[in-house]
Design a protein around this nucleic acid. Sequence first.
DNA 1: CATGAATGAGTCTTCATTCAT
DNA 2: TATGAATGAAGACTCATTCAT
Lengths: 224, 224, 224, 224
Amino acid sequence: MGAVKARRMPRAVREQQMLDAAVRIFGQRGYTAASMDEIAELAGVSKPLVYLYLNSKEDLFTACIRREARALTEAVRAGVRPDLSADGQLWTGLRAFFTHTARNADAWAVLHLQARTHGERFAAEVTAMREEIVAFVTQLITAAARDVHRDPHLSEGEAAGLAEALVGAAESLADWAGTTEGVTAKQAAATLMNFAWAGLGDLMTGRPWSPPREPETEPVAQAG
Amino acid sequence: MGAVKARRMPRAVREQQMLDAAVRIFGQRGYTAASMDEIAELAGVSKPLVYLYLNSKEDLFTACIRREARALTEAVRAGVRPDLSADGQLWTGLRAFFTHTARNADAWAVLHLQARTHGERFAAEVTAMREEIVAFVTQLITAAARDVHRDPHLSEGEAAGLAEALVGAAESLADWAGTTEGVTAKQAAATLMNFAWAGLGDLMTGRPWSPPREPETEPVAQAG
Amino acid sequence: MGAVKARRMPRAVREQQMLDAAVRIFGQRGYTAASMDEIAELAGVSKPLVYLYLNSKEDLFTACIRREARALTEAVRAGVRPDLSADGQLWTGLRAFFTHTARNADAWAVLHLQARTHGERFAAEVTAMREEIVAFVTQLITAAARDVHRDPHLSEGEAAGLAEALVGAAESLADWAGTTEGVTAKQAAATLMNFAWAGLGDLMTGRPWSPPREPETEPVAQAG
Amino acid sequence: MGAVKARRMPRAVREQQMLDAAVRIFGQRGYTAASMDEIAELAGVSKPLVYLYLNSKEDLFTACIRREARALTEAVRAGVRPDLSADGQLWTGLRAFFTHTARNADAWAVLHLQARTHGERFAAEVTAMREEIVAFVTQLITAAARDVHRDPHLSEGEAAGLAEALVGAAESLADWAGTTEGVTAKQAAATLMNFAWAGLGDLMTGRPWSPPREPETEPVAQAG
DNA sequence: CATGAATGAGTCTTCATTCAT
DNA sequence: TATGAATGAAGACTCATTCAT
């Protein structure tokens, strides 16, 4: 298991091996349950070397998050075809997204589950990436609205909410596709496009779904 | 801090206090970072008593998951108005869902984040609940399709995928509403209905979004 | 070795046992070389209990310093006979000092060597005690000067310097008496009284030793 | 930081640079807290080179002690004017001593604090130096006694005790002068001469301070 | 002569868990 | 019923020390 043990490698290479191991362990065990011992062993080095290069468990985790966040955004960016229409761009972007998350399940677990569950410092790191993506999707939605009407029915706030929903759905479907046998990235993307885009289309043509009248809305507040 | 110390309470009551404390700590610190010491202190009892009643950290966590999963499904079930049409039922269900998750943020964190991040045994516990909900939503979607056509365009698999997307989006929006100031449960529900339902409607009237032709789809497989 | 192992002792007692052990180990091995393992073992308890009661190595060391500093000052205070003349008070105080340090060699090593060698925080703790003693000795010296003249030849600064020298000499003699076989506390005290008091007497009668004239004094500055 | 990096220096020079760095670090951090990494970095060389030249941390520390002990004794020896009377010799010796310790505070910390706190092997190294000095001072005191009487009142043991006290006071005053702003070497020396010499003078003229009668002397023994 | 790469061994610290009362 | 006293096991982190180049 693991890579063949090769001693005396240049620092940069060893660092990547360590990050590979760390992403795998963090993704599978979770941040706290992951032990530096295990990571070092999987990386084929001794623990002190991990500390020498990556400083601490926190820093190591942060390095994982950064590397994988960058890898994911770049994969998506590379997938998007800017010459297509808004829905075409979304489609290709989603395909890239699902492909990347499915191929890098541990990295996705690190970003989507672990990083958000172990302290603000880590969460902030992913939030940056996520916001970048949400902003991009908001643009796409707004652009699409412009394609249909000169005078869009869509406020900025609404567009942001919809983007949030779309990204959220994508994230959940990524988990689903990663967990469920026989669901391809393409299928996941198609499902999401079907689910959302047609609806958005309707929305933009001025036929939004509207809730029935009702008397009262209680305020939302945390109980405990 | 914590509850007022009252001795000699009936076992059932004490147990609930412990679960209250545990949900709070697990939700805020995460499963591994949560310490039995802290939980016992917040519950206002000594640690051995926690062990006497709840057996072990794992069992305690499982008990939390079960209690909160049941509470959530019951809240949703209670929210749904079975006398309404499919979209009406979905709307009221979502409202109940967002209201409950917003009011019980720690419980939601336990179910949505913690339980899925710390071992199969816990994950399975939530999965059961989730599947129940997905099945219910699948029914609603199928029912809605029947309402529109006698001869639905919607395969079972498609309906399941859409339900998955909808539930996923709902989960993400629950996080979003819990995190973002000034977003009410009602708004979250409306956003999701707008996002999805109109699209589904389109879908059901036979105008699905369709991807452009392309030659090739690579299979999805985990790299590492 | 160590005390007979008795389980289930009240906290206060156990704490003192731990401090006893800690003083011994810290005094003999030094702060850094002392291991919590060894201290716990000598105290007859497990390491976690040491942490439960004393918090950390730093806190444990601080507790040692405080306890021993208090014990030493109290021993000296109890030794001084306030009804005697200044030289009588000094004599009895020194006797008490040498007796206590000789009987508690490890404690003396903690206070005199270890506490001053491992960070400001610890050093400050002993400095407080030392300043108290120096101030007391300064008073004695000044009082003695008043006994001899109405109009003392002794400035405040000079008195402080002399007190510093006397205390310093006492500290060194304590090491010496502790190390050298066959030197009693009484002898050490007598040596110091002989060494110093007669000289101070001379000083106070206005016959100070004076350095020969010389042309030049270079300023003192740290090289590195 | 550290010395300018110059490669390919003769071994002797490099060794001195290493010792310079080591004395500084050992003096400031203490033996155990000092890390070979830091020493090597401050010396401007790689760690393996330190090991190549100085063998081990213990050997390095020993080398420091030896070099600085020799430097100190030589400074004192060079300061003493053998053509002067006994008190003149003591005065000039003390001046040299305080000047050297003040100018080499780290070296003094190594000798006075660190070497005595980290194992017999190191302590022995300084003890040798100290005994040499004490012996020299004993001679001075005896010589001074001879200057006053043909038939000295001073036994050998008494002279040794007094020398011990004087040296001890000098050591403590060295710390004091090193720590307290505005105290020069000359002042420290004068304080000590005033404190001691006049007293010794008295002593030698046959008027020793004598303790009051008292019934009992308890034997001194270590408690623990 | 000189060093970047690498580690075995050990330290402080924490936590889930259990007795004895 | 309830708890103060106590611990085995494990994890993060550091350091003196050595190869291989």
